[in-house]
Design a protein around this nucleic acid. Structure first.
Length: 273
DNA sequence: TGCCAGGCGACGC
DNA sequence: GCGTCGCATGGC
């Protein structure tokens, strides 16, 4: 492993709540350090992030030429959330959800990280999803910085067998992870193909993976492929749409249902029984 | 100590 | 097409 001397830099991040954004159930790749910083991975890159007021200090832990561009995009800092919030807040209930935690941003996460994470998420809880993804990275992912492992590549995972994943304690999801890796490694499901397809066709292609249904597919579309109009419907969202919105998202969410979804999900999870 | 978890596949109808 | 059930595991 190459020892890397990081050059920290600062990003303008007005309105962002880093802690909430990293821990509201859309990513499982970050941990809080004792000193208040957050350490995590995205694809082949690792970093430590700190928030002070309207700025994020990024300390890269891996070499990266375009680090500022990468992390700005990852944190969705170029997206106009002020305008989005103004529209969302025209609906009373959506206003309530956004106001609960308005500093949340929908992260732009790497494709394969996201696919593996949300396969693991099914019929699971946030704490345990984190534990299993931690073990997956630690056991099978390359160490890219001191004590920090990225997610395994599709090729690496595709060469393994279900029994090899026993120690992850992922249960019935182990064979799903292998099948996803095999389909990605063989080229039958790739990020490039998905990017070229419309939402419906991309969802269908993702659902060819064993263990990927509509909900996991939609998480991949939203969290890694930038499909902001896709709102994954998990148990919390179904409950919220029914109890708060009378059965359907309001027109103010149109085109950005996925972004609205993240506020609604987090509000529902913390307020509805 | 059971109940349930950011679902999905298999099966029956 | 739609409702139901089992699934590995363990957090709460």
């Amino acid at each position: 492993m190459v020892v890397f001397s990081p050059v920290p830099f600062t990003l303008d991040a007005k309105g962002l709540d880093l802690q909430s954004t990293l821990f509201c159930g859309q990513s499982f790749s970050w941990q809080a350090l004792d000193d208040g910083r957050y350490q995590g991975v995205a694809g082949g890159y690792a970093a430590r992030l700190t928030q002070t007021n309207d700025c994020i200090e990024v300390q890269p832990l891996t070499p990266q030429a375009d680090a500022a561009d990468f992390w700005r995009r990852y944190l969705a800092l170029d997206d106009d959330y002020a305008a989005l919030h103004a529209t969302f807040k025209e609906d009373t209930q959506l206003h309530r959800c956004v106001s609960y935690c308005s500093g949340i941003r929908v992260l732009r996460q790497p494709f394969f990280d996201t696919l593996l994470s949300f396969i693991i998420s099914q019929n699971n809880n946030l704490t345990r999803i984190r534990q299993i993804t931690d073990r997956l990275r630690a056991r099978f992912g390359e160490e890219i910085a001191e004590g920090i492992h990225r997610f395994p590549t599709a090729e690496k995972l595709a060469a393994l067998h279900e029994e090899d994943l026993k120690e992850l304690k992922a249960g019935f999801r182990a064979r799903y992870l292998i099948d996803a890796a095999q389909k990605v490694a063989s080229g039958s499901v790739t990020e490039e193909k998905l990017q070229s397809l419309n939402d419906d066709d991309a969802r269908k292609l993702l659902c060819t993976i064993v263990g990927v249904g509509p909900k996991v597919a939609d998480c991949v579309l939203l969290f890694s492929l930038g499909r902001d109009a896709i709102a994954p419907m998990d148990v919390w969202m179904k409950r919220a749409v029914k109890e708060l919105f009378g059965g359907a998202l309001p027109p103010q969410a149109k085109g950005y249902e996925g972004i609205a979804q993240q506020y609604i999900f987090w509000y529902a999870k913390n307020h509805l029984e």
